[in-house]
Design a protein around this nucleic acid. Structure first.
Lengths: 106, 106
DNA sequence: TAAACTTAGTTACATAAAGTAAGTTATTAA
DNA sequence: TTAATAACTTACTTTATGTAACTAAGTTTA
């Protein structure tokens, strides 16, 4: 009884970042704007789920979709300010992984 | 072509932390060792998935399970050193959530 | 000019993960 | 004796993800 309840903002952040592929996708976009196919082959996500995630993240103002009207049209995905603000989280995970993740650890 | 491949240690860390419930469960255990039912009611996870997660995290040396031979027997779950080392990641997420997560943002 | 290829997706179907609710075993309380 | 609690497990349903084929628009190749 009287468990201190988990902060709803924190829970939202966790539910965003712990959705499969989301963190890896944001990490991938840290290196600059990229096209659908490039993201797909870089992180090994299926087209279907990538399409879903990009829509969700666009909706949440983490990713922006830019249509470049060349012929043929090019679509570039990049991080918004909010998206870029996630970098420190991913760097902290990166550091942790170097210290604590071993090859054999499943 | 020639995409710099994502570091496998980082990918492992991400796949650990972005499994549903895992980050929240570790966060919950930051406040000290707790029993099955307490964790369950604190974070709202089903018994089935909590049971799975605890086993996985025990196997990965993130959580330890201690049987206290009182009558009735009490089982306490707590973080190992490796588990505790995840705290900075969760604090970074906590900070980020305070700055960037709004009520209306789905 | 037709056939094949590329990008940025979508659709239909299959499998895996998670949720729900009831059941289990052991113990203790009324 | 009946009921209750803790820590799970099992069976079943729903949701998420993966696979692979398909599409539309334009482009390169033969």
């Amino acid at each position: 009884m009287n468990q201190p309840t988990i902060c709803p903002k924190f829970e939202k952040a966790i539910s965003l970042l712990s959705q499969r592929w989301t963190a890896l996708l944001i990490y991938q976009l840290l290196s600059g704007s990229q096209r659908f196919k490039d993201i797909q082959s870089a992180i090994g996500i299926s087209g279907k789920v990538l399409s879903d995630r990009l829509k969700e993240l666009e909706h949440k103002d983490v990713v922006k979709r830019v249509v470049i009207p060349e012929t043929p049209v090019v679509i570039e995905y990049s991080l918004t300010e909010k998206g870029k603000s996630i970098e420190p989280i991913l760097r902290t995970i990166e550091n942790w992984s170097q210290q604590w993740v071993t090859q054999e650890s499943e």
